[in-house]
Each structure stands twice: as structure tokens, then as C-alpha cells.
Design a binder for these strands. Sequence first.
DNA 1: CATCGCGACTGTATCGTTACAGATTTGAAG
DNA 2: CTTCAAATCTGTAACGATACAGTCGCGATG
Lengths: 352, 352
Amino acid sequence: MDNKTKNRPLTPPPDGGRPTLKTIAFMTGLGITTVSRALKDAPDIGAETKERVRLVAKQIGYQPNRAGVRLRTGKTNVISLVLTLEEEIMGITSPMVVGITEILAGTPYHLVVTPYSAVKDAMAPIRYILDTGAADGVIISRTEPHDPRVALLTERGLPFVTHGRTEMGIVHPYHDFDNERFAYEAVRKLVARGRRKLVLLEPPPHLTFYSHMRAGFERGLRDFQADAVGFHQTNIDHSLVEIRDAFEVLMRSEDAPDGIVSGSGSGAIALIAGLEMAKKKLSEDCDMVSKSPSDFLRWLRPEVMTMYEDIRVAGRELAKAVIGHIDGQPPETLQSLSQPEFQPPITRGLRA
Amino acid sequence: MDNKTKNRPLTPPPDGGRPTLKTIAFMTGLGITTVSRALKDAPDIGAETKERVRLVAKQIGYQPNRAGVRLRTGKTNVISLVLTLEEEIMGITSPMVVGITEILAGTPYHLVVTPYSAVKDAMAPIRYILDTGAADGVIISRTEPHDPRVALLTERGLPFVTHGRTEMGIVHPYHDFDNERFAYEAVRKLVARGRRKLVLLEPPPHLTFYSHMRAGFERGLRDFQADAVGFHQTNIDHSLVEIRDAFEVLMRSEDAPDGIVSGSGSGAIALIAGLEMAKKKLSEDCDMVSKSPSDFLRWLRPEVMTMYEDIRVAGRELAKAVIGHIDGQPPETLQSLSQPEFQPPITRGLRA
DNA sequence: CATCGCGACTGTATCGTTACAGATTTGAAG
DNA sequence: CTTCAAATCTGTAACGATACAGTCGCGATG
């Protein structure tokens, strides 16, 4: 027996560590290459051999070394979630991460959170990922109509998905909440309640869903014959105190609205505070419809009509879409829009 | 010039890809090994050489290939945040992730989120990380007094930090919120308001901070001479509806408390709902102190006195502690306890 | 003048995996 | 009795980095 056959490890691998291809090769008496190809179900390996290899691999709990694979193939098995550190008060990230990991759990992918701080640095993490090949796919949010991140990722061919749409003529995977419809239905609801002077707490103008929400709001005004009260001093990215103070001023003016559409759950809190500081009462002087990513409004302010934006589901959709993109599915099949629906009130207890 | 010197790449590396040690070696005319050691500031490399290498490396934006390092050295540069998928309603994860990444941003570490689903599977992600060497350090939460994860990680020598303490005689890094003091101060506050029949919405009994919070509560009762009303039907892990219904029953009974200590912000919501369903009024019939990881209670129910648990800071502390542990600092220097403080009310606007 | 030590640098092997180009066997075709 | 193709299996090199064991030149030492 010549010991030139380096590929066939006659030395038992220095056990104690985790099993590698070499371990399996030793146990089956096969070459490392054969084992590798057998586990990949390559066509040039005998059926029985594959079976044997699979069995042994399973028995000893073989799991490919990620560093080895990554070094050789460039495949990282990483999905990168790119986030801004300037967090929304109610922490939209939480359910998002949960949703994503729910999907990734059934795959070899890991979720890496990649943050950026200043708004102007939004490109930094993207460049980092591209330059270092840190991930196989990227999830980005706070999408803008002409988003340079989308342009760059597309140009470099790195799979990604956006939370929110763009308007740059690039067909790419996305998941979005139908903010146009949200605002439209909100107006319908308020008008049905007899409200006619409506105000919108809008998203920051540079984000894509700003125009969606505005469009829905204005279409609603036209269709249901209501009037808009201007309120562009603040948006949902401002601090709650700023929103509150600006809204108090508005509510004290003669232009005071009688119906509110709030583009965010935490913004709604500030609006309520401003309204109450102006000595107005919710439900009486004013009705409100708010988007809400969680339950607290329904519990604490049941007068507010809420449409639930399920961020956890969004996370799931986003994860499925990036993976689809990585797997080469056409982008146009990886787009989804979640439809807003009014939430029922919290069920009252059944006891006497 | 002999071309045996494989280590000195005379062929310009097939550029187009990212720079590697080989690229720098080619540019400086040095060997790959020398470049590697120069960048590590090894003592056997000349000062001027180091300078040159560093300069070139910086110029071309060299960043070590993580897969290469990881394969060779086993160092992953990954911190794993182990989370349960069964999320608390208010999403504590969000600020936590933000806090952690704030610290990791200044280091070579990446944050990987590793979830587990069923409570019984809490060990699964730990075993996975240990078996596959997936991380250099681990952050775990929902700590129990005798936590098998802590035992296993300690035994295997993988650096970690817990959010919460244990009681197993193992000295390990942790960060915790002082729940004992929280409950104690809460009782003090309620008694100062003339409340004497107090109830505690407690954590689930298997978690360590259950006994902390209970201890503080009971010490407060003794020191300030108040009485406890039993309420063990539900805890902060139960659904809001369950908490509400159980609390309604209690509030309708002749045992109805006049002071509430709520161990969680979202639990507080349910308690308020239950109380109101029992036709009682906050502030009048009953006062409440609640722990709160966010601002919404202060905005929507300013009557509730809150102590803020800054999860973002917790994330920062946890990240610092794992890294310290990885760097070999003694565990006893990596323990921290954050002190609760009552939050001031939201500042009222300044305008007329 | 050999030898030693030291400073500065370098080649080789290796981590685990896979692409690629063989190698070996078997049986059928000529 | 070649020759060839198909079916299986295998060795080598490479991905990028580092541990280790050198090598080389040079001034000091005996």
C-alpha cells in the first residue's frame, strides 16, 4: 500500500475535534473528493457509495466547515440585515429579526446585523459588504425612490431585497406595506364617521412610501370629499416631543382638523398628547386612524382605529425574497405587497 | 532570479478582486509571510518595513479575508446573540441589537442572531455554536438560577455573557437590571402614596430575576409596612389577555389591591385594562409602578410611575463584557448591574 | 579565521473544501 | 485481442491566512 495516496487518509484524523470530510473518508475508506461529491449528490458517484457516505455523515453529525466552503467557493451563507442605529421608538427591528430568522432557520443561512449610524452613511455598510464579500444577500429598509444602494447592489449583482419600493426602473425583489391603500382606507373610515377636515402625519419626504401614503390620502380626499389640513412641519421621523408641540399648535388654530391619519404608531402617541394639551378630546373633537406595528394603541387607546402592519410577516417575506433572489428566481416573482386591514378591538373578557 | 520563490509573487495577482496579502507582497516586493507579520506588528520585522507595509495596505484598502483567518486560526470574529423566537410583545430585542452593534462597530466582530423556538430547545443553539465553532462569544438572556447553558459554555470554555444572573457558584460575566431594588423602590413609592395592599406582576418563576424581584418586593413590604395581595395566576410571560382577565377577577374580589408593581411594560397595559374592566380607576382606586423599556406608558398613561430599563445600554454592556471575556479579562470584572430610577414625566410643551 | 548570535526576512505546510484533470475498472464493440 | 467509452473513483492545486522552521548577511567573539 503506497502512502502516496494523501487524499485517502490512512491516519485517523486527530480526533477530538469535529468531523470533516477527512473523517468520513477515513471511515468509509474513500477519497476525500469522493466523499465531497457524494454528499453533493454528484452524478459520477455510485448510488450505493452515496448511501454509505450519507449514512456515516449523518451518524457522526458531519457539518461542512463554513470557513472552508467560504474560502473555496466564496459562498458565505450569510444574509445581512442592514439597519440604521437611529431607532424608531417602538423598535420595529425586533419582530423583523424574528420573522427573518424564522425563515432562515430552515436554511444554511445565518443572519448578520450590519448597522450604520449617520443617515449619510447609508452606503457604507453596502460598500463594506460588496468589498469584503461579507454576505450572499442583503436586506435593506428605509427605501428611497432613487436609492443609490439599490443601484449599486444591482450593478454589482449582489442579491438583495428592499423593505419598500423604488422608482428607478429597476426590477428588484421587495416587500412593502400598501401605504397608499392604508391612507385611502383611513380617509374612508374618517369620512364615514363624519370627519371632513383631515390631517396626515406623514413619513419623511425622501422615503418612497411618503408619496404612496400621500397619494392614498389625496385620492381618499377626492373620492370621499374631504379636505386636507396642512401639517408638514413634522413627520414620523421627528421626536415625539416635536410632533406633539407642532400638533398642539395646529389643534389650537382655527384650522384644527377633526380627523387624523397617523403614519406611525409612536407618532400617534405624540399626536394624542398634542391634542389633549390643546384641550381637545379624542373621539369627540377628533377621530384618528393609525398604522400600528404593535398592540399597545389598541389596548391603551381603543378609540384609535388601527391598521396593523405585521413586521414579523414582513421579515418572513423579505427573507424568502432574498433567498429566492440568491437562488436565481426572477426578481418580478419576488415582490409582495401586504394589504392593510383594520384591526378588531381587543376582545372583552368573557367573565361576568 | 529563481522562480522557486513561490512565496514572493512575481506574477501580479489577477487583479480585479479584492487585495490579499499576496497583493501587498507583490507591491512591496516582500514575502507573503513578512507582510502578514508586519501587519501584526511582530517583533522580528524591521520598523521601516512595517511602515511601508502598513502604508500600502491602507492605500489599497486591504482587509483580511475572514474565511482565511477563520479557517487557519479558528477565530470567527463573530458574536452570537441567542434569542427566543417567542417574542415579548414590546420587542425588547430591538434596542438590544442596537446597543450591541454600537459596541461591535468599533471592533472586527460581527453580530449573528441565533434563534431557538421552543423553550425546551434553549440548549440547541448553544450546542450548535459549540459544535461548529460558529462564534467567539455568546450573549444569552432569560437566565435561570441553574442555567444549563452557563454550565455547558463554562465547561467548554467558550466566552459568553448573560443578561441576568445565575446562582450556581460559577463566576461569569453578566449584565443585569437591579430588579430587587426596582421592586423595593416601587413599594416605597406606593406606600408613600398611601397604598398598603400591594400586588406584584412577577416574572415567570424559573427565571433568576423572579426571585430578585420578589425579594425586593417583600423587603419593601416589611420595611414600609404594607401587605401583599397574592397574584400568581399569571406572570409577565403570559398573554396580555390572560393577565387582564386574571387581574379583573382580582380587582373585583374583596382582596382588590390598591397598589400595583408591574414587572413589565406590556404587562402594565394588561393590568390597566383589567382594572378598568373592573370599573376601577388608576390613580384613584389604585396606583401603579411599572418597569418600562420604552416610552409609551409615560406618554399614554402618565399616571403610571415608571422605572426605565434601558435595554440599549444593556446591549452595550453585554457586548463589552463578551469582548472582555474573549480578551481574557477576569469574569468578576465583567459584571454590571444597572440601577433603576424613576423617570420624570414627559416635559409639557413650552408654548402658550 | 571559524563560529556564534542576532536581526530581518522567507518557504512550506496546513486549516476544510471544491474544481479540474486524471486514473482505474469493466464490458462491449470492432 | 485490441480499442474505446462509460462508470466510478481519486490526486493535486487552490482559496487566504498563519505557525513554524528555516535562511541569509553581518558584526562581534574566542
